[in-house]
Structure formats: C-alpha cells, structure tokens
C-alpha cells in the first residue's frame, strides 16, 4: 500500500517536472511569437532600417546572418567531413587518434565568447582581416567544427561495414571505396548534421561581437571584408545601445521572432529528417 503511494507521489513529481519544462520553454516561444507578430510584415523583412532604427525593416541583419552562416559552413563543412573521414575510415587506433579525439571534445566545450577572443586576436588583429564577414565566418566555422565532425562521424559509422568489405574485396582501393561507396551512403546523414549545425550558429552572438557585427549599416555588405549586421547581435544592440526604447523593443521582438522561427525551422527539419533516416535504417 505504502509502496504504491510512494510511486504515485514520485510519478507525480516527474510529471510536474516535465510540465514545468514545457511550460517555461513554451512561454518563451509564446511571448516572442505573440508580441513579435505585431511588427511582422513584408516590409519588416525586406526593408533597411529607417529613422535611426525606429522604423523600416531588418533586411540587412537577415542578410548578414545568412552570409555569416554560409561563410562558416563553406569553411567548416569540408574540413569537418575530412576530419571525420580520417577518424572513421583511415585511422588505426592509437595515440595520435586519441589526441585528435580529445582535442575535438575539448574544442566543443570552449565557451563561445572565448572563440570570439580567438577570432579577434587571430583574424581581426594578426591576419588583418578587420572586423568583417570573413573574420566572423571563420570564427563561427571553428566553433561549429566539432559539431560537424561528430555528425559526419555518426553518418559514416552508419554505413554498413559489409559494403566496405564488398568494395575492397572487388579490388577497389581505399579511396575508391570511400568515394564511391561510403560517402554516397553517408551523404544524407552528413547533410542532416550540417543543417543542424546551421541552426546552431545562426543564433550565435558572442563569437561575432568583436569579429563581424555592427549595429548599423546603411545597406547590405558588399564584400567579405565588410562589417555586417546580424539578427542575434541586432536584438542585443537594440536592447542595450538603443536610444528609443519603445519602438526599438518592438523591433527587437520582431528580430527575435525571425531568429526563433529560422532556427526552430532549421533544426526541426534536420531532426525530423534524421528520425526518418534512423527508422529507415532500422
């Protein structure tokens, strides 16, 4: 009797935990969606900021986020896939591989603001790229590299060993096997991981604070050596550096809504695709 009672209480508590989690996360989304929807319009998405950022749109910030994210992926995706190929297809177990694995794990744990410092010291200062899309993209790319490596490794591991054996037994070389059998079969998994990583870096702010972001641009960036506005930084700047709190908070809601929808849509699609893939493989 007592046993059943304690179980009921315990399960009740767990239910409350789940409910509280969903409530908190839900209310964040709720507030942003409801209050952000008010300023949301076609003009908001496509226009440049006007009247010292109390009106107009945030198109340059959206564009900046897209550039920075794409730049980071152009840099990190090939590099990450190459690392994963080495670790999964070439590496014999050993000392060197352990060191590489360890450095990937530790890189994944470095705080994002420290990446910002690194980018500032290396790309902005030493390489003289200045505060620019290039510096920001490279910084974000290094930040996202561990994520891409582990996603790509998971995808490569999911390719059945029997296919590699079949290819090698037919006299294919190691690289032929990788290029023609392993990679095509891992491709969808790698792409899912890449999409997930895009969702992750699109919202990163700290790494671009000192390397790429600017509060106000008159228009769109023209080259990779230009500074750029970016959605996440724009939210922060509107709230802390703004001069017209009322109108600018409304705009910040709008930016937060765009960013939230963008990131949630990207990661939701990646996660749903991944679940489908897993079910398909199982």
């Amino acid at each position: 009797m007592k046993k059943r009672f304690s179980q009921r209480i315990g399960f009740g508590i767990l239910w409350l935990c789940m409910a509280a989690t969903l409530f908190f996360l839900g209310s964040i989304i709720y507030f942003i969606v409801v209050r952000g929807a008010g300023v949301f319009s076609w003009q908001f998405l496509t226009d440049v900021p006007r009247k010292s950022m109390t009106a107009g749109g945030v198109a340059p910030a959206i564009a900046g986020t897209v550039y920075l994210t794409m730049g980071a992926m152009v840099f990190a995706l090939p590099l990450g896939i190459a690392c994963a190929i080495y670790l999964n297809e070439y590496s014999p177990r050993g000392f060197i591989v352990n060191i590489i694995r360890m450095s990937i794990n530790n890189l994944a744990g470095v705080p994002s603001v420290v990446f910002g410092l690194f980018g500032l010291a290396l790309f902005v200062k030493s390489f003289k790229f200045g505060v620019s899309i290039l510096s920001g993209s490279l910084t974000l790319g290094i930040l996202v590299l561990p994520l891409i490596i582990s996603a790509a490794q998971e995808a490569l591991m999911a390719v059945p060993q029997s296919l590699r054996e079949a290819s090698l037994a037919l006299g294919a070389t190691h690289w032929q096997t990788i290029k023609r059998i392993v990679l095509p079969n891992a491709l969808s998994g790698i792409l899912t991981g890449a999409i997930l990583s895009i969702g992750r870096i699109a919202g990163e702010t700290a790494p671009i604070l000192f390397t790429a972001a600017t509060f106000y641009n008159r228009g769109f960036p023209k080259s990779i050596f230009d500074e750029a506005m970016a959605l996440p930084y724009h939210i922060y700047a509107l709230m802390t550096e703004g001069t017209h709190p009322d109108q600018q908070t409304a705009i910040a809601y709008g930016c937060a809504l765009i960013l939230l929808l963008l990131v949630l849509a990207i990661s939701a699609s990646a996660i749903i695709i991944r679940q489908r893939q897993r079910r398909f493989h199982a």
Binding site: L25, I28, I29, F31, I32, L196, G199, R200, A202, G203, E204, T205, P232, Y233, I235, Y236, M239, A252, A256, L259, L260, V263, L264, I266, S267
Partner: peptide
C-alpha cells in the same frame, strides 16, 4: 537550439 540571445531578450 533556441539561441541564447533569445533567452536573454526574454
């Protein structure tokens, strides 16, 4: 995946 800046804003 909700960005930290959104949490901060909230």
């Amino acid at each position: 995946s909700i960005p930290s800046v959104v949490y901060g804003f909230f």
